[in-house]
Design a protein around this nucleic acid. Structure first.
Lengths: 170, 170
DNA sequence: ATTGACAGTTCTAAAATAGAACTTATGGTC
DNA sequence: GACCATAAGTTCTATTTTAGAACTGTCAAT
């Protein structure tokens, strides 16, 4: 599979993965949410090679997740800030952090705690249903093909059925 | 950076990224949540090479996200099912899908719709504060070092400050 | 004129991935 | 009994990506 192909997939997960589905992009975004904005600061805090950093920043700008804003003339310098599209990645980042907090911390405990300024308390993120407000779990969710589904999509027919069908069709 | 090093980072995001932060792992997990369980089914529905699929499944089993369950003897065959740790990835998967639904769909619309069986409605996932129940946004959250924070962590001091400090220390 | 900050680009070596063929074990068919 | 299919991998070579380090260009301050 070529990675450009991912963007074209009729699957919202695949298309998002095309944008953020590599290790460095997610780490760069972590830094963005921690208010890092400049090339050398990303490089110093992540230890990423300058080559890859330039590449990933370019990709995130191309996808509209980051915007390049000049912060000085002569010599012209830019910083990278999150667009609204980028800020909207916050639930992804937080759910990743939360899973790590629950399943990957060592004996010392969590590296970071999160305070909700609105209510003043330390919190964990909880994913709920937009309609009834109840917490979500996989087994209470049923998927339906939407308007953008492809016919006979791998997402709606099991691979086993498809394999069989393909065999029948020659 | 070696990828094993990510698991050791005092950062819940980095440690989670070590488990699921590559494109194929996320796509494999999508299939798991769509009830795919067997090697050839994963391979057929994703188009991943068998080599990589074997590698990724092994990794996900090693991290306790999937479990290998025998479904027949002679010849011995296994299927891969999500553990509780794996099921707990659901909010990550859903937030990724939701971001794609909002920012990456083409004119045809969403490939998938989600129905909440508990309330019977089509829904979107919403991330809320565990304490007050309000929807979360990055700007209303403040981070604090937790017990597992490293001293002078890159997560709590800006890269700029660290660069300066390192320079001072020689 | 030299040094340092900043934001990259360029280079080679090492690692990961793609793509296809091969292996092992078993059951069913001609 | 030879042949084919199913299933879950493994092995092989070629291509692509990443790591690591050095280099470039612009300007300010010493």
């Amino acid at each position: 599979m070529k990675w450009d192909a991912l963007e074209e997939e009729p699957c919202s997960l695949a298309r998002t993965v095309a944008v953020i589905g590599d290790r460095w992009s997610l780490l760069i975004l972590r830094e963005c949410f921690l208010r890092i904005r400049r090339f050398d600061d990303f490089q110093a805090s992540l230890g990423i090679t300058r080559h890859l950093l330039a590449d990933r920043l370019k990709k995130l700008v191309r996808f509209g997740v980051l915007r390049k804003i000049p912060y000085q003339e002569a010599p012209k310098r830019y910083e990278y800030i999150l667009t609204q599209k980028g800020l909207d990645l916050y639930p992804i980042i937080m759910s990743i952090v939360h899973w790590g907090n629950i399943h990957m911390v060592d004996a010392r405990g969590r590296p970071l705690l999160h305070e909700h300024k609105s209510c003043g308390k330390m919190f964990d993120p909880v994913m709920v249903c937009s309609e009834c407000g109840e917490p979500l779990s996989a087994k209470h969710v049923h998927v339906h093909p939407g308007p953008g589904a492809r016919r006979s999509s791998p997402l709606h027919a099991s691979a086993r059925e498809r394999t069989k069908r393909n065999a029948e069709q020659g």
